[in-house]
């Protein structure tokens, strides 16, 4: 066991050289690499953290937008619903008004048709009544209808002659109006009767197609008339009653 001091010196030198070599090619690159990698990892983690924060911010923004979108959608839906309801109400009201107008128009048209029908019925009824009455008077009493009407009017005037004379005042003429021109015989009879009641008042005869069949006497502001209107109205009431009686069983059958 001996120590070779030259070898010792050489080994010390070798060891120092090895320290330098390993420092140069092992420790420094490895440790620097580790430090660089740790720095890189730290940087990437910070970057990841920033990206994570950024992603969280974007996510929050997205959720806010979605919430805002839902709110806007709800509001829009509500607005559209209200508009639809208003429009529906307007359309319903308009349809109701149009229906009411059409109903009113239809009712007016119906009333007009009813009036026309009634007028026609009056005319036809009056004509039929006059024709039948005239024929009955001619067959049974050998009298004309106009003469009987004139006589009836004069008989009607007689009880109220005083009142008529007062009402006539300073009237200078008595006017007899009929639907058709009165026959001369009837005119003569009426004139004679009235001259007996009102000696100073001349009598004039006129015809008015719009007037109902019959006679109408006007002296000044007074007026006395006999027409078939009341008879026609009575005939209407009778027909209506008969029609109503005739339709009741049918209506009851329909209800059953």
């Amino acid at each position: 066991m001996s120590v070779d001091w030259i070898t010792v010196a050489a080994q010390i030198a070798n060891f120092l050289v090895l320290v330098w070599l390993l420092k140069r090619f092992l420790y420094r690159p490895i440790l620097d690499g580790i430090d660089a990698r740790e720095a890189e990892i730290a940087t990437r983690m910070q970057e990841a953290e920033r990206e994570k924060d950024k992603a969280a911010a974007i996510e929050a923004e997205y959720h806010d937008k979605v919430r805002a979108l839902h709110v806007a959608q709800s509001e829009m839906t509500e607005t559209v619903r209200k508009q639809a309801e208003e429009q529906r109400d307007e359309l319903l009201a308009e349809a109701q008004q149009r229906m009411e107008r059409e109903h009113a128009s239809w009712r007016a048209h119906l009333d007009d048709e009813a009036r026309k029908y009634t007028a026609q019925m009056h005319h036809v009824g009056a004509s039929a009544l006059l024709s039948l009455t005239r024929k009955a008077l001619s067959d049974l009493a050998d009298e004309t209808l106009e003469a009987r009407i004139a006589h009836h009017l004069v008989e009607k005037v007689k009880p109220m002659a005083a009142d008529l004379a007062r009402a006539a005042g300073q009237a200078r003429v008595a006017v007899i109006t009929s639907h058709d021109p009165l026959p001369p015989a009837a005119q003569k009879a009426v004139t004679g009767e009235l001259n007996a009641l009102f000696p100073d008042v001349p009598v004039r005869f006129e015809s008015d197609p719009d007037q109902a069949p019959g006679l109408m006497l006007r002296i000044g502001g007074a007026q006395v008339a006999w027409t078939v209107e009341s008879y026609i109205e009575g005939l209407d009431a009778l027909i209506s009653e008969k029609l109503a009686r005739g339709t009741e069983p049918k209506a009851q059958d329909h209800e059953r």
């Binding site: 070798n14 090619f25 490895i30 620097d32 690499g33």
Partner: peptide, 23 residues
Amino acid sequence: TIFYTWIVMGLLTVASMLITRNL
């Protein structure tokens, strides 16, 4: 002693250089 020391030094150095050359 010196010869084998150089071998050990060479192995350590060359291995370190090869491994850490492209870090």
